[in-house]
């Protein structure tokens, strides 16, 4: 059970039960769709960016605990970030869940709870779905992002 708690930490379960910013953003000026064909998880991400800064962010969709919590916590950490900082956060998060050497949980704040994913390689895509969707939204891509 201790192994499991490493993955399903209380903060992840909390975000799964009560996802933050879980709504459509009427005045969004960037948005993107993400889809994980392996498990059917879907996310629609909305961003409102003004002067290169993320002013507001919201998401809709359905997914597992890992993907929902990851999306929820991502939206929390994005507010107030510049586009460049958001990109940087993507890289850091990606390094962390992929278990890369250079991973630096320090700059990730609460998002560091996802470090447990290193032990669950098949679940990495669940956590990165929202983040790949973020990158697509930042780049203004209209294609649905697929994790496969």
């Amino acid at each position: 059970m201790s192994d499991l708690r490493e993955l399903y930490q209380e903060v992840i379960l909390d975000h799964q039960r009560r996802p933050r910013n879980f709504h459509r953003l009427e005045d969004a000026n960037r948005q993107a769709e993400g889809f994980n064909p392996l498990c059917g998880d879907r996310i629609h991400l909305y961003l409102r960016i003004e002067d290169g800064v993320v002013k507001d962010v919201g998401f809709e969709g359905s997914g597992c605990a890992i993907s929902t919590a990851s999306a929820s916590m991502m939206t929390e950490s994005l507010k107030g970030k510049t586009e460049a900082q958001a990109e940087e956060l993507f890289e850091k998060f990606h390094d962390l869940v992929m278990g890369r050497q250079q991973a630096d949980p320090a700059g990730l704040g609460k998002l560091a709870v996802f470090s447990g994913l290193r032990e669950y390689p098949v679940r990495v895509k669940c956590a990165t779905l929202a983040w790949h969707t973020l990158r697509a939204a930042l780049q203004g891509s209209l294609e649905t992002v697929a994790t496969e």
Partner: peptide, 19 residues
Amino acid sequence: HPHDVGTILDQEGIAIRTG
């Protein structure tokens, strides 16, 4: 979500399909 069910069952040695 079935994927979370599958991961926890796997930790118990139980292989099922989810998806």
